[in-house]
């Protein structure tokens, strides 16, 4: 009964606004979460995830239906975010102090899930997780995007390759390097 994402996208291509609203409703949280994970900036995440929906509206007709809709949409979104980061890298350096103020508004530790049972054990675990995510922050954009698409969005290697416009072998290298870095951070060899 419920229309698939792909069918909705087809309708959007024919100018069906309710279909667009439905797709936005289905993807808004995922899109915003993914953009925020890549950009780590609330305003930019909001802006670029909305931009991705605008691009979706404008180019729904070019969705060929060969890939899953989600993969196609993530590709639009992730590339917007990565392009944004690339373009603004020089700028980020210049305004470094102002930015870190922004980011310190909500330290990563506060954004981790609430601790459960044993508070002491949880505190230790919280610290490790915080360390782990800080290390994720330090990865290259491509490595981080590949990792987030895997652990957060549950995409398979082939899908990540489609999103990042690279080969599966490249995705494997990104993931392996990312995990090797994280392992080293946590004291593994």
């Amino acid at each position: 009964m419920e229309l698939s994402d792909e069918a909705l996208c087809q309708r959007v291509a024919n100018g069906d606004k309710p279909a667009f609203d439905l797709l936005v409703g289905r993807y808004q949280e995922r899109a915003h979460r993914l953009a925020w994970s890549i950009l780590r900036d609330a305003e930019e995440a909001r802006d670029l995830s909305q931009e991705a929906f605008i691009r979706l509206y404008q180019s729904a007709g070019s969705f060929g239906g060969r890939a899953r809709f989600s993969t196609w949409f993530y590709r639009i979104l992730v590339n917007l975010c990565l392009d944004h980061r690339r373009k603004h890298r020089w700028w980020r350096r210049v305004i470094g102090p102002a930015r870190s103020e922004d980011e310190s508004e909500s330290p990563l530790l506060e954004r981790l899930p609430a601790p459960a049972e044993d508070p002491l054990e949880e505190l230790g675990r919280g610290r490790v997780m915080s360390q782990l995510w800080a290390a994720v922050e330090g990865l290259s954009h491509q490595q981080r995007a590949a990792l987030l698409l895997q652990v957060q969005e549950g995409l398979r290697t082939a899908e990540i390759a489609q999103v990042l416009k690279c080969s599966e072998a490249t995705v494997r290298v990104h993931l392996h390097r990312a995990l090797t870095t994280l392992r080293r951070t946590l004291g593994g060899t």
Partner: peptide
């Protein structure tokens, strides 16, 4: 590490989805 990451995904800031869609 993958399990740890999956079980500790940082929460993005709260969004008022009605306002988000209106803005969009």
């Amino acid at each position: 590490i993958l399990q740890d990451l999956e079980s500790s995904l940082p929460r993005p800031p709260e969004v008022h989805w009605g306002a988000y869609r209106a803005e969009l």
